[in-house]
Design a protein around this nucleic acid. Structure first.
Lengths: 133, 133
DNA sequence: CTGGGTGCAAAGTATTTGCATGAAC
DNA sequence: GTTCATGCAAATACTTTGCACCCAG
């Protein structure tokens, strides 16, 4: 288990128990919706407010400590920022997995044939995961 | 200009003036947010309700006449369903363009190395469009 | 004529804001 | 001690629902 105290401070965020819980949950779960995060947090902090969840998620988004992943036909999930990667979204159980896919060829093609300058790519593959098959 | 009367009927939707306007706007604009669609519609139907917009968008989504495209850091846009394709999203002006990218190689790789069964893929490339460079 | 569509108002859901108290550093 | 975070309540934003009236077929 990583200790996120210093990492939070590096992002100009005080290391409160609530924030440490959020980072731990994100670390363990990988991807989580606001709703699920709140449900898990309530178990540890019975009087936590949804406002606190939103404020912290928004602060962490602003300084790029975490990122939002928009999933077709489902709620957004949040994850700790890491190297660029794509996502697998199970249409049955809702599970989101990271997957490293090399998009260089594609990005090079776009660079050649288009005048559009690509800064980032977001790819989500929807389907059925191993467990649900 | 395509006449969407029969196309709407084929989707079990009566061809009302409001719906014909929505289909025309989608056809011309390509991609549009709920908000912008409402603004354009108000010019033609001064007393149109947002509820009518939402009801129609939801009906058209249900029968797959249109699709929602989720854009990172921006509002969702809606487009008339067509062959599978990807999107370019300009981070400056917000413009969304269609782009045909062959993802077969990638999907084959995933099929080989993963146990995940892919049904569909959603790729958005964010960056700066021609006009904004 | 009949069923479905529209517009309005109200309800529901999601997210943000203001502020007093309290905790981090 | 000072700054910033939390939790509550209220406000705002977004989306859906119920219903009376109206129009497409």
């Amino acid at each position: 288990m990583i200790n996120y105290t210093n990492i939070l401070r590096q992002h100009n965020l005080k290391a409160t128990p609530q924030r440490l819980a959020i980072t731990d949950i994100l670390h363990v779960q990988g991807h989580i919706t606001i709703e699920s995060l709140y449900e898990v947090m309530v178990k540890k902090f019975s009087s936590i407010s949804l406002a606190t969840i939103y404020k912290n998620i928004n602060l962490m988004l602003e300084n790029s400590f975490i990122q939002e992943v928009k999933i077709p036909h489902a709620k957004s999930v949040y994850e700790i920022t890491k190297e660029s990667h794509s996502h697998l979204a199970c249409e049955k159980c809702g599970e989101i997995q990271d997957i490293i896919i090399d998009l260089d060829n594609i990005l090079n093609e776009v660079a050649k044939t288009n005048t559009f300058k690509v800064n980032s790519s977001d790819l989500v593959l929807s389907g059925i995961c191993k467990n649900c098959q």
